[in-house]
Structure formats: C-alpha cells, structure tokens
Design a protein around this nucleic acid. Structure first.
Length: 328
DNA sequence: AATACCTACAACCGCCTTTCG
DNA sequence: TCGAAAGGCGGTTGTAGGTAT
C-alpha cells in the first residue's frame, strides 16, 4: 500500500551537509555514466547517501549549468511577477529563470522577497495590499487618538501610535504607487510640505462624477480619515480609485519624472508583458482565477472593515502590477 | 568574552504524480 | 489495468555564520 521510503530507514545512510569528497564522487560518476536510476546511484558511485539526497544535491548544486550568486533586479521582478501568477509553484517559476533552481528561488522568496513585499504593505500571498493593516487601522487610530500630547502617553500607547503611523504610511505608499504607475509625477509632492490636504485631486474630473467624492480625488490624509472612521463601501467600490490609469494624467500633476525624495517610491517603467492581461484580473489565487464569471466588481463585500472590501475595487491592471513596485 | 538571538540557505521529509513491468 | 518503484515537488527543519546584548 504505502510507499516504501526512498532509503531504508534502518540503513545508516549519511545525512547532513555534503563533503567535497562526496561531491567529487557524485560529479565524477554522473559525468561518466549519467545519473540513471537515482536509487541505485549511491551504491554504484560509492556514496553512503540516499538516492534522493544525491538527486537533490546534483540538481540544486552540482549541475554545471547552475548560476550561483545573488539575484539581479530583473530576476527579482520576474520571480515576484511569476509568483503572483503561479503561486508557490517553484519548479514552474524556476523554468523561467535560467540557471536557478526551485529550491534556490524558494529560499530567496522566503528570506528576501516575502519580507520585502510585507515591508511595502503588500500581502506576499495575494500580492495585494495587506488588508490586515486596514482591518487593524481603526483600532490603532482610535487608540492613538486617546489622550493628549505624545509626551503624556505611556510607552505602549506611543507604540500604538507608531504602529498606526506605520500602517497609514504603508497604505499611503500603495495609493501613491497607483498614482505613479498611472504616470503621475510624484516629485511634485514635495512642494506641499507634507500638507496632503492641499494636494490637487489625484485624478481628473472624469473620475469624480458621483454623489460622494471619489476616493481617488481625496487627499491621502482625508482618505485615511474616512477609512479610519468607517468608509462606505460605495466609495471603495468606485472603479475610479484605480481606473486603468487613463483618468490619472491630469496636466496639473504632469507625467512621469523622478520620485518624491522622501518617499520610498521609484520611477518605474511598465513591466514587460510576461503573461496575458487576463492573468492579472482579480488575482484571487484560486484555480479558477475568477473564471466563474464573477467579475472583480461583483465580489460581495465581506471585509471586517465596515463595508471596506478591497475585493470590490476594480483593481484591474493596478494591484496586479505590484511586481514592478519592487524595482527600487 | 560569553551567550542569546537572528538570518540565510542547504538539506530533509512526506506526499503526489508519473513511469513501467 | 493495477500496483510498485521512481521521480518530483513544496513545506519544513537543521545548522552555520553573523550580530546584538
């Protein structure tokens, strides 16, 4: 019934790091004979190792076509992009990166890229803004607004305030990036001296034809105020929040240009079209990929955040572009 | 200087899929 | 067609080196 283990459990096959001598034996044997049957290979090569271990050592480290060394920016972007499309299909991802192994990519993801995305407020699983930040924000802000001046606050309350600021900053980053992706010149933000309420609308008039002002036309700070006080689902459901970018080329804001010096944004070129645009839509990470006929806009609200449900936003072509946000 | 903690990555484990007799 | 063997994959663990206390 059950499969026998690759190596006999009672056999005292060696485990742990490979020695240079073992590597030499394995390379020489495969060089002469090819690997053939991995199970028989250890005995034939004079190695006291499990065949599986030999295969892993060969495919991940000893193969002559393996590229060693750090990942380039292009490789990073490609991994993030492919992960957004394929998920944890490391072997599939590895086939797109010449000379890289699935194990290497997986490790690099877990140790570097995952943290990088998290630090930018992006969920590394969904590749969308972290909703945990949004969900926790009202409480954080409420706590932070308690009491008076910061110097009067106990330490833990100051910590909460800092967390709230950090969450706000990450959300702001996401919003600003959307604008930047759409060609908005963020370098001009500096002239507003941090007073975001004086910022011009983030979109042009075509995006503001609603009873309520479109979120995208609000300053980031007032936007966050609305969020923290419980924003209506209608607003967030507004497709104008991120509407393909064509509504964002306000002449007042200009196009392109360098990033704001005090923000961790960067000038970005559009990514090469790695996959069909449809692959990005909704990006639910489900096998169907939204193929059940329900569009992103039709997704029912389900957020704990009082009507706020990022799934409701028409995100097409927006959040799915997070892969190029890491170009910095 | 010693110890604890953190980080990165190599290697292992167990399950699933494919191949083959 | 079936079942066992082998290969492959993704998740997890172990360990070495670096850093902080």
């Amino acid at each position: 019934m059950g499969r026998s283990p690759c190596c006999e459990q009672d056999a005292d096959v060696k485990k742990g790091p490979w020695t240079p001598e073992e590597d030499k034996l394995l390379v020489e044997y495969i060089g002469k004979n090819g690997h053939g049957s991995w199970r028989r290979l250890p005995k034939l090569a004079g190695l006291n190792r499990c065949g599986k271990s030999c295969r892993l050592r060969w495919t991940n480290y000893l193969r002559p076509d393996i590229k060693r060394g750090g990942f380039s920016d292009d490789e990073e972007r490609l991994i993030i992009h492919l992960h957004a499309t394929l998920g944890n299909k490391w072997s599939s991802i590895a086939t797109k990166l010449k000379g890289r192994t699935d194990n290497e990519i997986k490790n690099y993801w877990n140790t570097h890229l995952r943290k990088k995305l998290l630090s930018q407020g992006i969920d590394p699983v969904t590749h969308r803004p972290r909703t945990d930040l949004l969900a926790g924000l009202p409480n954080l802000l409420a706590a932070a607004n308690l009491g008076g001046a910061a110097h009067q606050l106990p330490l833990d309350l100051n910590a909460i305030k800092l967390q709230a600021d950090a969450a706000k900053f990450q959300i702001l980053q996401g919003l600003l990036r959307q604008q930047q992706l759409a060609g908005v010149d963020l370098s001009r933000l500096g002239q507003y001296n941090g007073n975001y309420d004086n910022l011009p609308p983030l979109t042009n008039d075509s995006c503001t034809q609603q009873t309520q002002p479109a979120m995208s036309s609000m300053s980031p700070d007032s936007l966050l105020n609305r969020i923290s006080s419980g924003i209506s689902g209608d607003m967030l459901g507004s497709p104008e929040l991120c509407h393909g970018g064509d509504g964002l080329s306000s002449p007042e804001l200009g196009q392109g240009g360098p990033s704001a010096s005090n923000m961790t944004t960067s000038p970005m070129a559009p990514p090469p079209p790695m996959v069909a645009a449809d692959d990005h839509q909704c990006n639910t990470n489900t096998p169907s990929g939204g193929g059940d006929g329900m569009s992103c806009e039709q997704t029912p609200a389900s957020s704990t955040f009082d009507g706020l449900n990022l799934d409701d936003i028409d995100m097409e072509g927006c959040w799915a572009m997070t892969d190029i946000l890491l170009a910095e």
